[in-house]
Simulated scan of single mutants.
Amino acid sequence: MFVVTLTYIQPLTEVDKLLAAHVEWLKGGYASGMAIASGRKVPRDGGVILARGERAELEAWLAQDPFAVGGVARYDIVEFVPSMAASGFEALTTA
């Protein structure tokens, strides 16, 4: 499993121009099973994606993000193996 953090490297005005395309790209990640959860950071200086799959596939998918293509975000990937989860989230430990 992976925690991907996005950090905006351009002004929000530039990020917002690509937001609709980014959301459509995320929907594809959910449809494929790669994306598990996503959302904005607070304050809004980037975002977070919880993902699963193979690292090479994840990196290829991230490279297609309109935020990456448009050069408005930097990505950091942390891989981890979930061994415990809160009630209701047990499926995460088998991902």
Rank of each mutant, 00 (worst) to 15 (best):
V81A: 11
Q10T: 00
T94Y: 08
Y8N: 11
G29L: 02
G28W: 07
D65M: 13
H22K: 04
Y75P: 00
L26F: 08
R40L: 05
W25P: 09
S87L: 09
A91G: 00
A20S: 13
L6D: 05
A20K: 15
A95C: 15
P82Q: 03
D16A: 12
L19C: 10
I9K: 04
T94P: 01
V42A: 12
I49P: 02
A20Y: 05
G53C: 05
A20R: 10
S87V: 06
L18M: 08
S32P: 06
W25C: 12
E79Q: 14
G46N: 02
V78Q: 09
G88S: 08
A51R: 00
K27N: 13
E90M: 10
T5N: 10
K17R: 13
T93V: 07
E57S: 13
Y30P: 07
I49H: 00
V78S: 03
A56K: 13
E59A: 15
G70R: 00
P43Q: 08
V4R: 10
A91Y: 02
E59Y: 12
T7Y: 02
E90N: 07
F2V: 03
G33T: 03
A60K: 14
I9T: 15
A85W: 02
Y30G: 13
A68Q: 12
G47F: 14
A21Y: 04
P66C: 10
P82A: 05
G53D: 07
R44M: 07
P66L: 08
A73W: 05
A37Y: 08
A95F: 15
R74W: 10
F67C: 05
